[in-house]
Every structure is written in structure tokens, then in C-alpha cells.
Design a protein around this nucleic acid. Structure first.
Length: 181
DNA sequence: CTCTGGATTGAC
DNA sequence: TCAATCCAGAGG
């Protein structure tokens, strides 16, 4: 399976969020490789009030400003981790949040942004990793192409700002898409 | 320095 | 419906 290159992420964030659906996230931290198909994403850009990069560069969000294809992992509610991949270009704070995976290998219980991080063992340690390197600890592989008719675009979940943006994408009828939808 | 609220989840 | 549990960001 071919790995996804940096050029894939060096595009408009909404396009990346949409086209990331169906591809395979791979993580190898210990001796096991975990794989899952991305079935739900959300886009966040620097000019979006809900984005962590909205107020400019910060220590927490620096990975969003790094090269396209950089993993951004942050702690939310003091308990959970969420994983994003930086998009667009270096020094522009934007990225795609991965909200749900369909388990392929060595994982289960991945129908939520914090749950998938837990299942894949993604923690702050992986913040700043380049997912286009095509090797451990984290990388992406092309999966099967999703028919555009089966991609649903709607509003994002769990945020209080910019609620009206239709910046969430998911695969229609996929049982692993997070609830609350 | 203090205070507030959050890209969630699972238990009541 | 609500607590868990920590820290970034805002304000003094």
C-alpha cells in the first residue's frame, strides 16, 4: 500500500479533511502495528474561531503551524487526547481532526476522537511527528476511494464557537462514525 | 498570579 | 445530566 505524501496535506484544509476519509492511519509504538480507516474528520483553520491556532502561534498549537503532515496531539478536559494532522503550509495554523476510525488491525473502540487516540496509543509523545515519513511511529496509507455520494458534510461537534460551519465530514452509513451526530 | 472553560467520555 | 481532572489563555 502506498504511503500518503506531504503534497496531499499541502492543500485547502476542507479538501484534505474530505479526502482523508477512507485512508488508513497506522501507528506503531510498541511491538504491534495498529491500523484503522479514517471515517470521520473535522477541519480547523487559523481564521476559524474554534481553532486552537486562531489566536496565533502558541506552544500548544505549534504543530499546527509546522509542515503539512505534522501530527498535532493535545490534551482536552485534562483527560483525553485528540489527534490532528497539519495542513496547508508551514506557519499557517490549520489541520484536520480525526474523529473516528474503522478498526483494521490491533484496535477496537475507535468511534470518537479521544477513544481512537487511546486505542491507537496516541499521546503527547507523538505530537510533532511527521505522518508522511511512511514509517513508525505514525504514518498514513492510501485506502479505498470513497464515492463522493457517500460523504456527508455537516456541522462540527462539541465546540461553542463557529458552530454554523459545515466543516465535519463522515462516511455515510459507517457504523464507526461517532455518536451524537 | 488567579480564574475560566474546553475539538470528550462514561457513569448516573 | 454531570463529574473527572489539567492546563492554555486571558485578564489583573
Amino acid at each position: 500500500m502506498d504511503k500518503i505524501e506531504r503534497d496531499f496535506f499541502a492543500r485547502n484544509t476542507l479538501i484534505v479533511a474530505k479526502e482523508l476519509l477512507g485512508n488508513v492511519l497506522c501507528v506503531k509504538t510498541g511491538d504491534k502495528i495498529c491500523r484503522g480507516i479514517i471515517v470521520e474528520t473535522e477541519a480547523y483553520t487559523q481564521d476559524d474561531p474554534a481553532c486552537h491556532a486562531y489566536r496565533g502561534f502558541s506552544e500548544r498549537s505549534k504543530s499546527l503551524f509546522s509542515k503539512p503532515g505534522t501530527l498535532y496531539v493535545y490534551l482536552i478536559y485534562g483527560i483525553h487526547y485528540c489527534a490532528n494532522i497539519a495542513t496547508e503550509k508551514e506557519n499557517f495554523g490549520s489541520g484536520v481532526l480525526m474523529r473516528a476510525l474503522e478498526p483494521l488491525e490491533n484496535i477496537c473502540d475507535t468511534n470518537g476522537p479521544a477513544k481512537l487516540c487511546k486505542a491507537m496509543q496516541i499521546t503527547k509523545n507523538l505530537d510533532g511527528c511527521d505522518v508522511t515519513a511512511g514509517k513508525p511511529p505514525v504514518w498514513l496509507e492510501y485506502g479505498k476511494k470513497i464515492n463522493p455520494k457517500n460523504i456527508i458534510q455537516t456541522t462540527r461537534i462539541g465546540i461553542s464557537k463557529a458552530k454554523d460551519y459545515d466543516w465535519r465530514f463522515y462516511i455515510k452509513d459507517n457504523k464507526w462514525v461517532s455518536k451524537k451526530a
